[in-house]
Design a protein around this nucleic acid. Structure first.
Length: 491
RNA sequence: GGGCCCGUAGCUCAGCUCGGUAGAGCAGGCGGCUCUUAACCGCAAGGUCAGGGGUUCGAAUCCCCUCGGGCCCGCCA
């Protein structure tokens, strides 16, 4: 018999024994429980060695480890509030119940315990147990108690095992959730209205990534999953909303690597009658706020302190072309021909197609020379117009657009523009983009241009990658460390 | 798309260089122990060495293919 089956058979036999004795191995509830932290702090308030017979506590959680010493047994009970040692003695439970419990209890079981706060002789805060209740028998054994689950693939495919074995993993995902909450709170306080726009669209637009394609049976038409939130949100500016944001999943049918996932969470915000200078101030305020809140909400997560201090100091600002010229040693990049830029990009190790637009080569050069050095929070501003089809041209710098990206730890955290609101200019750029990519494969959102013709206020907008934000505040090396269930190949 | 690396018990890992009966710890079983916290001590058990093919008297080990994963590079505004 395979090992796993044998282990599971043994545990199933325990369930059967439980039932045969008229006890329920999967009961319905365990009322009046408190967190393990309540017992810990009650125990710590006691004089060493003393018990507090007045108050009984009921706690529930997962059994992490069992240490049997004949007529005394210790068990570590894990719940969301932490870990608590249970001190179980034959004197308190009675001979029969004590023996029965020892025989049937396994690491991984979910149990409830009632007892009083106490210290062990070694001083460990403990629950001196009066009674135990099985809440759910674990048929399959948990990962190894000391090393936990190490296999990267298993940690991702069976995240529940990673989470139940790794408090660090649970803390990281909790941190992600709290960061999202703080983003919402900050934007709400700044007067932004949260909205929801469609995931399913006739044509995915607002970025140049390949979409996931599916089909509506009702329409009998192909539909695509959104690749950005931008165009529906700008329509809302046309409609008269002045500050809106959306937090949602977007889908790009592209490769997965340490900073890209086919589905990821984007925060986009649009702000009428404001420009990208205003947006920079908003970003600085947001990240400083997040850092301060992170220090309060999850101070023990790895990387929090460094990130919070970095964002508290604020962002440096560098000009896209000046920084590229400084790091590459090449002068007058702004006046180079497409062919010259192509050769420079090739020398830097890039192999994009020869007929790519000049902006593509500039982006490659930027990624090669500048990005890795952007470890401290940095705004990169005023990109060459050829790199950026959807931003408004710069009001004073010729050949540039009003755009900033911001970086930390060498990767991009977000991207913002003063938004293009000239409908004819927008239509022209859509057509150029279409032409460059092959019209049979891509269509553009004609209704968006029609909306712009009705007038969109001068506005600024931003896209922020939430997954990368979570990476930044938790020192995560891979985006998979901050996505609960990353896409994995069927097996 | 290219290169490199990994896959051995439920979990964590040795063994592979240089071919010779597959090992340990944790978890599980049995026994002991009333203060441990990676508890400890004793006994017994647990394997499709990812899958397939090849070389060989003999393959976890060498070779080829496949599957899954990781890292790097490239591509993907």
């Amino acid at each position: 018999m395979p090992e796993e089956s044998r282990l599971e058979e043994e545990r199933r036999a325990k369930v059967a024994r439980w039932r045969a004795e008229g006890r329920e191995p999967y009961p319905w509830s365990f009322p009046d429980r408190v967190g393990t932290d309540a017992v810990r702090s009650a125990a710590q308030a006691l004089a060493p060695g003393a018990d507090a017979p007045g108050t009984t506590y009921r706690v529930a959680g997962r059994v992490r480890a069992i240490r049997q010493h004949g007529r005394t047994t210790f068990a570590d009970l894990d719940d969301e509030a932490g870990e608590l040692q249970l001190l179980v003695r034959v004197d308190d439970l009675g001979e029969e119940a004590y023996r029965a419990w020892l025989a049937d209890l396994d690491p991984g079981d979910l149990i409830g315990a009632e007892g009083i706060a106490a210290h062990s002789r070694r001083g460990e805060p403990s629950l001196l147990v009066r009674s135990l209740t099985l809440l759910a028998k674990a048929i399959s054994p948990p990962p190894e108690k000391y090393h936990g689950l190490q296999d990267v693939e298993e940690r991702i495919r069976r995240r529940y095992l990673d989470l139940l074995a790794s408090p660090e993993s649970r803390a990281r995902f909790r941190a992600r959730s709290l960061l999202i909450r703080e983003c919402r709170s900050y934007l709400n306080d700044a007067g932004f209205l949260e909205v929801e726009t469609p995931v399913l669209l006739p044509v995915a637009s607002g970025a140049a990534a390949a979409p996931f394609v599916t089909r509506s049976r009702y329409l009998d038409e192909e539909v695509q999953l959104r690749i950005a939130l931008e165009l529906p949100l700008k329509r809302l500016l046309v409609g008269g909303f002045e500050r809106v944001f959306e937090l949602g999943r977007v889908f790009r049918n592209e490769d997965l690597d340490s900073i890209h996932s086919p589905e990821f969470t984007m925060l986009e915000a649009y702000w009428a009658y404001a420009d990208y200078h205003d947006m920079r101030r908003l970003v600085e305020g947001l990240y400083a706020h997040l850092g301060r809140r992170a220090l309060t909400l999850f101070p023990d997560v790895a990387g929090v302190r460094e990130a919070a201090e970095a964002f508290e100091r604020g962002f440096a600002t560098v000009d896209f072309l000046e920084e590229l010229e400084r790091t590459s040693g090449v002068r007058d990049l702004g006046s180079k021909s497409r062919e010259e830029l192509r050769e420079l990009a090739r020398a830097a190790g890039s192999s994009v197609p020869d007929d790519s637009p000049a902006g593509v080569f500039l982006d490659k050069l930027f990624e090669h020379y500048v990005e890795p050095g952007l470890t401290a929070p940095t705004f990169v501003v005023d990109h060459p117009a050829s790199t950026t089809p959807l931003a408004k041209r710069h009001r004073s710098k010729s050949g540039r657009v009003e755009r900033f990206e911001f970086y930390y730890r060498g990767f991009e955290l977000g991207n913002a523009y003063t938004e293009l609101n000239d409908p004819d200019e927008q239509e022209r750029r859509f057509r150029e983009q279409l032409h460059a990519r092959g019209a049979d494969q891509y269509a553009y959102d004609e209704d968006f241009v029609r909306a712009l013709r009705h007038g969109m206020p001068p506005s600024t907008g931003i896209g922020i990658g939430i997954d990368r934000m979570a990476m930044a505040f938790t020192a995560a090396a891979s985006i998979k460390d901050v996505i609960l269930f990353p896409l994995a190949r069927r097996r």
